[in-house]
Simulated scan of single mutants.
Amino acid sequence: MAGLKNQTKQNIINLTIKLIDDNGYTNISLRKLVLKLGLTTGSFYKHFSTKNELWLEVTRDLSQQIANTASKNIDLGMTPEQNIVALAVSFLEQYQTHPNIMDFLLFNPMSQADLNQSSESFKYLQIIDQLITEVINKNHMNKDKQTLFIQLWSFIQGYGILIKNNSVSLDQSIIQITLNNFLKE
Score class of each variant (00 low, 15 high):
residue 35 L to G: 14
residue 111 S to M: 00
residue 146 Q to H: 08
residue 107 F to H: 01
residue 108 N to S: 01
residue 99 P to D: 01
residue 146 Q to A: 09
residue 177 I to D: 06
residue 74 I to P: 00
residue 62 L to C: 12
residue 157 Q to A: 13
residue 6 N to S: 13
residue 46 K to C: 10
residue 40 T to D: 06
residue 44 F to Q: 05
residue 52 N to C: 02
residue 146 Q to C: 06
residue 55 W to C: 10
residue 116 N to V: 14
residue 92 L to F: 06
residue 40 T to N: 07
residue 74 I to S: 01
residue 11 N to P: 12
residue 122 F to M: 12
residue 29 S to P: 01
residue 38 G to H: 08
residue 177 I to V: 07
residue 56 L to R: 03
residue 51 K to I: 06
residue 75 D to E: 08
residue 146 Q to V: 09
residue 109 P to V: 10
residue 4 L to M: 05
residue 28 I to W: 07
residue 45 Y to I: 03
residue 138 K to I: 10
residue 79 T to S: 08
residue 25 Y to I: 03
residue 38 G to V: 07
residue 3 G to R: 07
residue 183 L to S: 03
residue 154 S to Y: 01
residue 61 D to A: 14
residue 46 K to D: 10
residue 66 I to C: 00
residue 45 Y to S: 03
residue 125 L to M: 09
residue 5 K to S: 13
residue 118 S to F: 11
residue 152 L to P: 02
residue 41 T to A: 11
residue 87 L to S: 00
residue 173 S to G: 12
residue 109 P to M: 11
residue 68 N to Q: 04
residue 5 K to I: 12
residue 24 G to E: 02
residue 20 I to V: 12
residue 56 L to S: 04
residue 129 D to H: 11
residue 155 F to D: 15
residue 123 K to R: 11
residue 48 F to T: 09
residue 118 S to E: 13
residue 118 S to T: 14
residue 7 Q to C: 05
